[in-house]
Simulated assay, not measured.
Amino acid sequence: MKVYISQLTETENIIDLLEKYEIGLEIVLFASPYCLDRQDEFIENYKRELGDLYGKINLGIHGPYADLIPGARDELITKATNYRMQQAYDVAKKMDANFVVYHNGYYPKTYSYIEWMQRTPTYWNDFKEGKEDDDIKIHIENVHEEDYFLLNELMEEIHDEKTSVCLDVGHVNAYSKADVMEWMKILKKYIKHMHIHNNFGDRDSHLGINKGELDIIEILNIVKDKDITVTLEITHVDELRESLDILYKNGFIKLREAVKNNLN
């Protein structure tokens, strides 16, 4: 298991965490269409902000999601979705990122399961064409789904070495009728990335790992020896710091060599 943190604040607020721990960074800036349209400018900004860490830490990209629907009825919406998602993939290539996370984009009671599955597998298989030879993984994330059925059905159609599930445990706890353990049991062979944050089941709060009703340590113990990446998606920096300290004390992450050497 490899741990990343999601950038939900300015780089200056988390740079010391990236320097202290052997963790990667999942960049959320390019979920914005504004930043995607000016991607070269913002990539250069990132390089300056990360300084010596750029090229030394693992990177992932959180792709765009607002207003995008892979299973849309309207071909114009599908084209817009593909355009934005391709932009994010281009950013991942330029930044030598390991993966891109995309939302599944399904809203309950908007489309029937049957209708969604008539179009969505085709969308993703078309999207992957021409990308077979690079090392960038595509992780498809649950958000508002009330159960795991759709993602499981989708993965049966499109899963391969490149394409897998990003299980967001906070989204499951806030929106799903099935609990996290059931999702993990059903989707276990498809889960290659996870978003980790906590809440009390009433909303998508993105709290620290010890601040809600989920037992995050129990969840991580299930996957700690697997070939999987996990990203802490925690809004408040103080809660992120506390969560990383908990992960360190429980043996999920290590200090960077430079930090170890200074301590010695």
Rank of each mutant, 00 (worst) to 15 (best):
Y4D: 10
S6P: 12
Q7P: 14
T9K: 07
E10W: 06
E12N: 14
N13L: 08
D16G: 12
L17A: 09
E19F: 11
K20W: 08
Y21N: 09
E22H: 05
I23R: 05
E26L: 09
S32R: 02
Y34V: 00
D37Q: 04
Q39C: 13
F42L: 11
E44P: 00
N58F: 07
G63F: 07
L68E: 01
G71K: 03
A72D: 02
E75P: 04
K79D: 10
K79W: 13
K79V: 10
N82S: 14
Q86C: 13
Q86T: 15
Q86P: 09
Q87H: 11
Y89Q: 13
K94E: 11
F99Y: 13
V101A: 09
Y102D: 11
H103E: 10
G105M: 01
Y107Q: 08
T110Q: 02
Y111R: 02
S112P: 01
Y113Q: 05
M117I: 04
Q118D: 06
T122E: 11
Y123Q: 12
Y123S: 07
N125G: 04
N125F: 08
D133H: 13
D135S: 15
K137N: 14
I138Y: 14
H139L: 12
E141V: 04
E141Q: 06
E145Y: 06
E153P: 03
E157R: 12
I158T: 12
T163N: 09
V169T: 06
H171R: 00
N173E: 04
N173V: 02
M181S: 02
E182F: 01
M184D: 03
L187M: 00
I191F: 01
H193T: 07
M194A: 10
M194R: 12
G201A: 01
D202E: 10
H206R: 00
I209M: 03
D215L: 02
D215M: 01
I216L: 06
I217A: 07
E218I: 03
I222R: 06
V223N: 06
K226W: 08
T231H: 08
L244R: 05
I246T: 15
L247H: 12
L247E: 04
N250L: 08
N250R: 14
N250S: 13
E257F: 00
E257H: 00
A258M: 02
N264Y: 03
